[in-house]
């Protein structure tokens, strides 16, 4: 088992290196110059000094040298500075990541509870009106563009009713909880519908399986069948999906952060790519990539623990 875990961990390193090289190379191809991004054309700045700055940042050096400098810095634990803002990237992440994680985690819990319970109820009462309603909601949740749903919520709750603020995280005029509700609802919708579909289908599969049929034949009460046997077996794949979804949520909240001006990491990434602020793009990309790798690693370990066949097959 230890060997299996070690092997998986070591596999991650070349992967991360390769991804970082890929992203670095692609960013070079964009040809965006972060230094000239600082100076807006409306108020042209000090050209000679901008050239000096470009030189200082090593932007004139050849691509490979800059890449290795960058890797060296990262290995020494130096994440570098944002070119356009000057904030150390460590600070930047510390400022912005909690907002995204808060949004992603809470939305995930809410949608896990909602999605799984609706899914199970739908499966138990298959082809009943409840099932149709649940399924329709699930399909709708996947068909409606997230930002459109967000705009609808803003129109209803912020503009028409004036109950909830339409942007930001903290402010002097509304509690953090009220700021949180709309972005959370928006992110919850799509995830809930995914989870609902999954848990309904899994539950149906389990309910039709032989051993549940046997359990029923043995005269075990329906509730007990659902709770004890079916639920547990149906949940395993759903948990795996959840594990996979968290890192995706981090990069996927880009759109939602833009609708609600939520000060998270997604908007930092968007702005940094647009501005060619490569130290920021590199670190954030690697961070998200690493979290995806770790999540899939955890899933692998979990499955291996639960099912010895996988482990044997790998070795």
């Amino acid at each position: 088992m230890l060997k299996f875990i070690l092997k998986k961990l070591i596999q991650m390193i070349p992967m991360l290196l390769f991804i970082s090289f890929l992203v670095f190379g692609a960013l070079q191809l964009t040809g965006i110059d972060p230094v000239s991004y600082i100076a807006t054309p409306d108020m042209a700045a000090n050209q000679e000094n901008l050239d000096l700055l470009r030189e200082r940042l090593g932007l004139n050096q050849p691509f490979l040298i800059r890449y290795f400098n960058w890797v060296g810095d990262i290995l020494r634990g130096n994440f570098g500075y944002s070119i356009t803002n000057g904030t150390p990237i460590g600070v930047l992440i510390a400022q912005r990541l909690p907002a995204t994680i808060e949004l992603a985690l809470i939305s995930m819990v809410v949608s896990a509870v909602l999605g799984i319970s609706i899914g199970i109820v739908s499966a138990i009462y298959q082809n009943s009106p409840i099932d149709y309603l649940g399924r329709f909601f699930a399909v709708l949740g996947q068909a409606i563009p997230q930002f459109f749903f967000g705009i609808c919520l803003i129109q209803i709750f912020s503009i028409k009713l004036g109950w909830l603020p339409s942007s930001g995280r903290y402010s002097t005029y509304a509690t953090p909880l009220r700021h949180f509700i709309l972005p959370c609802l928006t992110l919850t919708l799509s995830l809930t519908s995914v989870l609902m579909r999954y848990s309904r289908n899994n539950m149906l599969g389990v309910l039709n399986s032989d051993y549940i049929k046997t359990a029923r034949m043995k005269g075990i009460s329906e509730t007990k069948v659902y709770v004890k046997h079916a639920f547990r077996n149906a949940m395993r794949p759903v948990l795996v999906i959840l594990c996979f979804r968290l890192p995706m949520l981090i990069s996927g909240s880009v759109v939602i952060e833009s609708v609600y001006n939520w000060p998270g990491i997604g908007s930092v990434i968007t702005d940094a790519v647009i501005a060619g602020d490569y130290p920021v793009v590199m670190v954030t990309t690697l961070m998200v990539a690493a979290s995806i790798l770790i999540a899939s690693f955890l899933v692998d370990v979990l499955t291996a623990l639960l099912d010895p066949r996988v482990r044997l097959g790998e070795e």
Binding site: M15, F18, I19, L22, V23, A26, L27, L29, T30, I32, P247, M248, I250, S251, G252, V254, G266, I269, T270, V273, I274, G276, V281, T284, T285, V288, A289, I292, L293
Partner: peptide, 22 residues
């Protein structure tokens, strides 16, 4: 398979943003 894993690991949004810029 490795290649497909890499494409799945690089966050899609970032990839699209960068490619769009390129």
């Amino acid at each position: 398979v490795r290649l497909s894993e890499i494409f799945q690991t690089v966050p899609n949004m970032i990839l699209i943003l960068i490619l769009g810029a390129v």
